[in-house]
């Protein structure tokens, strides 16, 4: 449910004209809630959407890939899957 709630907030922010991007590990819920922009790192799980505890390099790499997706947009409401390598 928290993956639905976050999309409600995301939609409100996007609707006032500020771009957003969501890192989701519950892609089905994210699509159903109609997220404007989302990435799904398939190698991360619930509890570690950004990366494993202590893995600063992995967390940083994921955030950079998430931001990079902003410049290669896909249809709003769909999700960009990010896989390892």
């Amino acid at each position: 449910m928290c993956h639905r709630t976050v999309v409600h907030v995301q939609r409100a922010i996007e609707a006032i004209g500020i771009p957003t991007i969501l890192i989701t590990v519950e892609p089905t819920q994210t699509v159903q809630a109609r997220a404007p922009r989302a990435v799904h790192p398939t190698f991360n799980a619930i509890g570690t959407p950004v990366g494993k505890a202590g893995d600063a390099a992995g967390q940083r790499a994921l955030i950079e890939r998430t931001f990079a997706a902003l410049y290669d947009p896909i249809e709003p409401g769909s999700i960009r899957e990010l896989s390892l390598s």
């Binding site: 928290c2 957003t20 991007i21 509890g47 959407p49």
Partner: peptide, 10 residues
């Protein structure tokens, strides 16, 4: 002055 919002779930 926010230009971009990053969001995460649990």
């Amino acid at each position: 002055s926010t230009d971009l919002v990053l969001l995460t779930g649990g």
